[in-house]
Amino acid sequence: MLTIEGLKKSYAGNDILKGISIDVNKGDVISIIGPSGSGKTTLLRTMTTLEEADGGHITFSGIDKDFEKLTGKEVNTIRRNVGFVFQNYNLFNNKTALQNITEGLIVARKVKKSEAEKIALKALERVGLTDRKNHYPSQLSGGQQQRVGIARAIALNPEVIFFDEPTSALDPELVGEVLKVMQDLASSGTTMVVVTHQMSFARDVSNRVIFMADGHIVEQGAPKAIFEKPSEQRTKKFLTDILANV
């Protein structure tokens, strides 16, 4: 459904992504793990055109093109067919929870207001925040904000939702509620690509785990295989280090 080939990105002479290829199929829940600075977040941001790629090819919703040759229209198409959940939630500060969700529907998708509100309420219900619909982001806890962020993404009914470290800005006691929502989404068949430090999520929820280091995909496969029998030395080291700290 979404195929990326040879994705490259560099900042000021530093190669952050050195040719990444990923295949996302419908219903996949892919976890991307790896040490800090390995390019996980950059990968997500370039795949979704939030940042311009320096090279690579994308096949997605009728587009089959090199990143550099994407037209403005095609960029829009990509953005319209993906959802994105940010590390810092990035809810619109001047909109209520409900308006945060309806905004994209009404403005970008031209959905009627009443219809948009119905969709938004349903999305809020899925994340368990119906009673907070008229709250502004500043009046919500971090966990609640992130759940609204997820509702905002699912309301647009995208083909795939990207999660950029959705729990790393949260206080530890708020991580659970967000993971729970993500787990529900996964089990309902939503296609998800998740950059995460939550090894439990990667191991228990996803159907594929990608281990990245230094701008490369070092290894990928079923969570069982990666966590129990990693074939690469780097993966082994990363996992022992991180699991030792849990």
């Binding site: 829009n76 953005r79 500060n93 909109k95 403005v107």
Partner: peptide
């Protein structure tokens, strides 16, 4: 915050729409 613009883009709004509807109101206040 620049995240406000990014969030607007990722729900499918145009940069201009995001500017008028999200960024400018916050800046004015």
């Amino acid at each position: 915050d620049k995240g406000q613009m990014e969030a607007g883009l990722m729900v499918g709004m145009q940069p201009r729409q995001t500017f008028w509807r999200i960024i400018l109101p916050q800046a004015l206040i």
